[in-house]
Amino acid sequence: MMRHDFQTIADWISAKAKVLDLGCGNGELLKYLQDTRNIHGYGVEISDEHVLGCVKNGVNVIQRDLEAGLAEFASDSFDYVVLSQTLQAVHHTEAILHEILRVGRQGIITFPNFGYWKNRWQILRGHMPVSEDLPYQWYDTPNVHLCTMHDFEALCAKVGIHIQECVVMTGGHRVNWLRNLSGSLAVYRFTRDGM
């Protein structure tokens, strides 16, 4: 099954664009974009298993640790840089945002919205939230930097990100009001400030 955020991302990406997908997993998104948008894409992955998965899927993949930056990639060399459901697992959050702005003309980031009411409700009941978009137990999670939409937007203002568009989803369906409360998954498209 295709991940809920993929279709939204695909809708934003123009045909034949050059796309970099950070933390690309087995390359599902890039393969989808290659098949439907005829894009020229590269993925970045650290895991051996996922690198192999990308090769099997016919997706270009560069094995590297995102935390160490994107040294192989020249400035302004991509139309879009995508970070889908990976931001929350990144340690050097500001550094990776700066790298996205350096390498790409546009950035697309998706993350599980910690402000979603079901997450808040679980915390009110005394537990760390576990949900479709946050499927891990607290003791066994790759996530280190969970945030709400408000938190993310505050960081964007700090690092010079200009948000162009935001789609919020719950269970695969768009939500349009009280989004930081009603949305489980946030999908942002942005550019550098001043662009």
């Binding site: 050059k18 020229h40 590269y42 051996d48 690198v51 990308c54 090769v55 270009n60 993949v61 560069i62 094995q63 590297r64 040294a71 192989e72 990639f73 020249a74 060399s77």
Partner: peptide, 21 residues
């Protein structure tokens, strides 16, 4: 090897890179 990869990326060639442990 990364130098080679970087030069191929700069030329927009199709390239994959793996660092085997």
């Amino acid at each position: 090897s990364r130098e080679i990869v970087r030069a191929l990326l700069d030329n927009e060639r199709r390239v994959s890179y793996a660092e085997i442990d």
